[in-house]
């Protein structure tokens, strides 16, 4: 085998919670972008970024939807930052049974940030006019031994386990109909 190095693009969004003003424009555009057809509806509950916003305690935390988890954590910690107390869940990206965050409101199917596939720049970043969200791309080397996991497949399997094959098939049918 060759010793050529492979790289992959790491996309990251930097979140500066000091700059966040709680406007939820990021939620608005994310949910509109992911509507089917695109931009046909708006509903922050479907957004893949949600802002925990408690103005009186000055808590503003935009969080991106990450992976679906089957069970909630057993113990939960608290963070104290600058004298403000945050629940661990506040920073957590999981679509988790403990909360209704990052789940489709009707079906309960998990939502996950896809970095706005197909767009030049994540739209939440574009719509955050105060630069609380900024976007960065960097190339990172990956080792030979890195195993490629078929993420889509394991993801689907988890969904089928949780929601049953019919419901998942139904959603896929809806998606492909909308994409045609």
């Amino acid at each position: 085998m060759s010793t050529e190095k492979k790289t992959k693009t790491i996309k990251s969004i930097k979140i500066d919670i000091e700059k966040c003003n709680g406007c939820r424009a990021c939620e608005v555009i994310c949910s509109a972008f992911h509507a089917m057809p695109k931009y046909s509806s708006n509903n922050p509950a479907r957004s893949r970024i949600r802002v925990t916003r408690e103005p009186i305690r000055d808590v503003y935390v935009p969080v991106y939807a990450g992976d679906y988890v089957v069970a909630e954590c057993a113990g939960r910690d608290k963070y104290i930052i600058d004298g403000k107390e945050y629940d661990e869940c506040t920073f957590c990206r999981a679509s988790c049974p403990s909360r209704d965050l990052f789940k489709e409101p009707d079906s309960g199917l998990p939502l996950k940030c896809d970095m706005c596939e197909g767009e030049d720049e994540p739209l939440c970043v574009k719509w955050c006019r105060v630069d609380a969200l900024t976007y960065e791309e960097r190339e990172e080397e990956i080792g030979e031994e890195e195993v490629s996991v078929d993420e889509a497949e394991t993801g689907l399997e988890a969904l089928v386990n949780k929601h049953g094959i019919d419901k998942v098939a139904d959603i896929i049918a809806q998606i492909s109909k909308a994409k045609q």
Partner: peptide, 13 residues
């Protein structure tokens, strides 16, 4: 947690 729809999505956005 419900949708608000717009009539002409591309124009509107």
């Amino acid at each position: 947690t419900k949708d608000v729809n717009v009539a002409e999505p591309a124009e509107y956005i």
